[in-house]
Computed example of a mutant assay.
Amino acid sequence: MTNKKTDVVTELVTLIKKGNAHVPLTDAVADLPAELRGKKVRGLPYSIWQLVDHLRFTQWDIVEFSTAEGHESPEWPAGYWSEHITEVSDELWNGALQQIAKDQERFFKLLKDRADELLQPFPWGSGQSLFREAVLIADHNAYHVGEIIVLRRLLDAWE
């Protein structure tokens, strides 16, 4: 017999990591030519880099909020979006992707360590729970990964 709470945590981790019905971030950015990272497409307000950096920052914010009381999130939306830059160095790009992976691992540990409290509202916030924040990460990532793929298609960089 399996532990239902462990099963839920496993499903949440899989959803965040692999996207289930959605392309995971790692696949969405794989083999993206460096010169396209900061390129904007007419009619869209952001580049692939800005989307990746937005995912990095927003996920970090959610993990920090989920960890303990006292975390102060920045003003929405300005605090969650970086300025447009046209050239994104390998260091900046890889650093953002590594931070996303690192924060996901931090969040997965939190899910596993607090599996008995998944639906219990945090003592801080306005009713958020660890389960809700996990679904938020998965939902938010899927939305913006879809935008990355659309941008890649518009830039003729997606098969």
Score class of each variant (00 low, 15 high):
residue 1 M to H: 13
residue 2 T to D: 10
residue 3 N to G: 03
residue 3 N to E: 12
residue 4 K to V: 14
residue 6 T to M: 06
residue 10 T to K: 08
residue 10 T to M: 04
residue 13 V to L: 03
residue 15 L to S: 12
residue 18 K to S: 02
residue 19 G to Y: 03
residue 20 N to L: 05
residue 22 H to A: 13
residue 22 H to L: 07
residue 25 L to D: 00
residue 25 L to S: 00
residue 27 D to T: 10
residue 28 A to C: 01
residue 28 A to E: 00
residue 31 D to C: 07
residue 32 L to N: 02
residue 32 L to K: 02
residue 33 P to E: 07
residue 34 A to Q: 12
residue 35 E to K: 11
residue 36 L to V: 02
residue 37 R to M: 00
residue 38 G to T: 06
residue 39 K to T: 10
residue 41 V to R: 03
residue 42 R to A: 13
residue 43 G to Q: 09
residue 45 P to H: 06
residue 47 S to I: 06
residue 49 W to Y: 14
residue 50 Q to G: 09
residue 51 L to H: 03
residue 52 V to D: 01
residue 53 D to T: 08
residue 53 D to N: 14
residue 54 H to R: 10
residue 56 R to L: 04
residue 57 F to L: 08
residue 57 F to S: 01
residue 59 Q to P: 01
residue 60 W to H: 12
residue 61 D to S: 14
residue 63 V to P: 02
residue 64 E to A: 11
residue 65 F to A: 09
residue 66 S to R: 06
residue 67 T to N: 12
residue 67 T to A: 11
residue 68 A to C: 10
residue 68 A to M: 13
residue 69 E to R: 10
residue 69 E to T: 11
residue 71 H to V: 15
residue 72 E to F: 05
residue 73 S to M: 12
residue 74 P to Q: 05
residue 75 E to H: 03
residue 77 P to N: 11
residue 78 A to Q: 12
residue 79 G to W: 09
residue 80 Y to S: 03
residue 80 Y to G: 02
residue 82 S to T: 10
residue 87 E to H: 15
residue 88 V to Q: 01
residue 89 S to V: 09
residue 93 W to A: 07
residue 94 N to L: 14
residue 94 N to R: 13
residue 94 N to S: 13
residue 97 L to T: 04
residue 98 Q to V: 12
residue 98 Q to P: 01
residue 99 Q to C: 04
residue 100 I to W: 02
residue 100 I to R: 00
residue 102 K to I: 04
residue 103 D to P: 01
residue 105 E to A: 12
residue 106 R to H: 10
residue 106 R to K: 14
residue 107 F to P: 00
residue 107 F to C: 08
residue 109 K to F: 08
residue 111 L to R: 05
residue 113 D to R: 08
residue 114 R to K: 15
residue 116 D to F: 04
residue 117 E to V: 06
residue 119 L to D: 11
residue 119 L to F: 10
residue 122 F to E: 00
residue 123 P to E: 05
residue 127 G to L: 07
residue 127 G to Y: 02
residue 128 Q to N: 12
residue 130 L to Y: 08
residue 131 F to K: 09
residue 132 R to L: 13
residue 133 E to L: 15
residue 135 V to E: 06
residue 135 V to Q: 07
residue 136 L to M: 15
residue 137 I to V: 15
residue 138 A to D: 08
residue 139 D to R: 13
residue 139 D to C: 13
residue 140 H to A: 14
residue 140 H to K: 14
residue 141 N to M: 15
residue 142 A to S: 14
residue 143 Y to M: 14
residue 147 E to N: 12
residue 149 I to G: 03
residue 150 V to K: 13
residue 153 R to V: 03
residue 153 R to D: 01
residue 154 L to T: 02
residue 155 L to K: 03
residue 156 D to W: 00
residue 158 W to Q: 03
